[in-house]
Simulated assay, not measured.
Amino acid sequence: MFLNTIQAAYGARKKAKRVGRGIGSTDGKTCGRGHKGQKARAGGFHKVGFEGGQMPLQRRLPKVGFTSRTKKFSAEVRLSEISSLNVDVVDLQVLISSNLVPVFTKKVKVVNTGVLSRGLTLKGLGVTAGAKSTIEAAGGKVEA
């Protein structure tokens, strides 16, 4: 390989757009800028995000973080916490009365953390796939 034989890959060097070369070239007369207006002028520049005087999107949006409105009403319970309960059927009311979830909880999901030694029936609770298999392996069942 010699320095005088090195060439750019095909398509790496694009030819410059030659504007103002007649109406047959598709970029004649107005050179692809349309008719009049700020962007048709030489130096017709506006800053990034400028929306013609309208309040720009980045200034319209709130500057504080997102807070889920449903997060307050949902909770997560571990299998180890459920196994410590002395009941056979576990539902939302049982979890609230045993202080495992707050009183205003509407949705509960059971996650596969800990060991379940006995069979339990879960009613009306969300269950992860791992937790469901652990509950069924222990002889319990999950009802909708």
Rank of each mutant, 00 (worst) to 15 (best):
G65S: 09
F66G: 06
F66W: 12
F66L: 09
T67P: 04
S68E: 10
S68D: 12
R69W: 07
R69L: 10
T70D: 10
K71A: 12
K72D: 09
K72Y: 06
K72W: 04
F73V: 07
F73Q: 09
F73T: 09
V77M: 02
V77P: 00
R78W: 05
L79F: 02
S80R: 04
S80A: 10
E81D: 06
I82A: 03
S83W: 05
S83M: 10
S84E: 13
L85P: 00
N86C: 11
V89Q: 14
V89A: 04
V89C: 13
V89L: 15
V90W: 03
D91F: 12
D91A: 11
V94E: 11
L95N: 04
L95T: 02
I96T: 12
I96M: 06
S98L: 07
S98A: 14
N99G: 10
N99Y: 09
L100N: 03
L100G: 02
V101Q: 01
V101R: 01
V103I: 13
F104L: 14
T105Y: 01
T105S: 01
T105N: 00
T105G: 00
K106Y: 13
K106V: 15
K106N: 14
K107Y: 14
K107W: 10
K107E: 15
K107F: 15
V108E: 07
V108K: 03
K109A: 13
V110Q: 09
V110I: 15
V110P: 00
N112I: 03
N112L: 14
T113A: 14
T113G: 12
T113K: 15
T113E: 15
T113W: 13
T113C: 11
G114T: 02
V115A: 13
V115E: 14
L116V: 07
S117Y: 07
S117L: 13
R118T: 12
R118Q: 13
G119K: 10
G119M: 04
G119W: 08
L120G: 02
L120M: 12
T121Q: 07
T121P: 04
K123Q: 10
L125I: 03
G126E: 07
G126L: 09
G126H: 08
G126I: 05
G126Q: 07
V127H: 00
V127A: 06
T128K: 03
T128R: 03
A129G: 07
G130V: 05
A131L: 06
A131K: 01
A131G: 03
A131N: 02
A131Y: 00
K132Q: 11
K132E: 12
